[in-house]
Write a protein that binds this DNA or RNA. Structure first.
Length: 238
DNA sequence: CAACTCCAGACGCTTACCTCA
DNA sequence: GGTGAGGTAAGCGTCTGGAGT
């Protein structure tokens, strides 16, 4: 905006009138002059190496640039303030980018979970069907054995004939880990604790994502009841 | 040694001025 | 030429840490 080329009558008579003004209170900033390019350049250079000037250094700089020591001090103060503002803007940008990134990851995971839930629901239906149609097929017995088994994953995998085991393996793969500690899972997934915290901020308060009752109700005969633990592996993020 | 005062410097906010589109 | 926006030097009030009493 400012090309810095114009410094009205500035440096020929450096700040003589202004010094007079600064001693006169309330008479504000009359005859204020912008510093010359050369002065700004030197000050900027100085600021890059140290954002605070020791008093002796301040005096030296003031002498070299033909400024009052107070002017140098004020310039550094203003510069620090400007730098801080810029830094805040930069930090905000970074945070915003991180947030967007996390939000999109979260959305993807949400969709993934939704797909898995639907899949699970279908599988539940499949399991229920033969049971309803006739109790002769023996599959119910197989699944009931799951109920009593502490290691559900293994029990399901052992059913190598059915579609279920494949789906479960896929689910395990998608989830990466089978753990009762879902917060640990989140952290593990995102690698960073702070990011995990952000996730909790992203998660809608209305529980739209979290309600599993709708599909859980399909487990009418308590096939997947698990008394040993409060969590099911498919409770991921619920 | 604690309590108090004084002072210089830093900071945040604001004002006044300047320049440019 | 008038005007609004943006940049910036400086004013002002407040806080803080160090030195002296």
């Amino acid at each position: 905006m400012l090309d810095g080329g114009e410094y009205t009558q500035g440096m020929a008579e450096p700040f003589s009138s202004m010094t007079e003004v600064t001693t006169t209170k309330k008479k504000k900033n009359k005859n204020r002059r912008r510093f010359s390019d050369e002065q700004i350049k030197s000050l900027e250079l100085m600021f890059e190496s140290e954002s605070r000037l020791e008093p002796p250094k301040k005096l030296q700089v003031a002498r070299e640039l033909g400024l009052q020591p107070r002017q140098v001090a004020i310039w550094f103060q203003n510069k620090r303030a400007r730098w801080k503002t810029k830094q805040l803007e930069r930090d905000y940008g970074i945070l915003q980018a991180n947030y967007s990134n996390l939000a999109s990851k979260f959305e993807n995971l949400k969709k993934e979970k939704q797909a898995l839930v639907i899949q699970l629901q279908k599988l539940n239906d499949l399991l229920k069907k033969p049971k309803d149609e006739g109790k002769c097929c023996g599959q119910v017995t197989t699944m009931n054995s799951i109920d009593g088994d502490s290691d559900k994953g293994e029990a399901v995998k052992s059913d190598s004939e059915g579609q279920l085991s494949l789906s479960m393996e896929r689910s395990e793969h998608a989830l990466g880990v089978l753990s009762d500690d879902d917060s640990a899972m989140k952290t593990d997934y995102f690698r960073l604790e702070e990011e995990a915290n952000l996730v909790s901020m992203v998660e809608p308060a209305d529980g739209s994502l979290t309600s599993s009752e709708d599909w859980r109700s399909f487990d009418s005969d308590g096939l997947f009841d698990q008394s040993s633990s409060g969590y099911q592996w498919w409770d991921f993020w619920s």
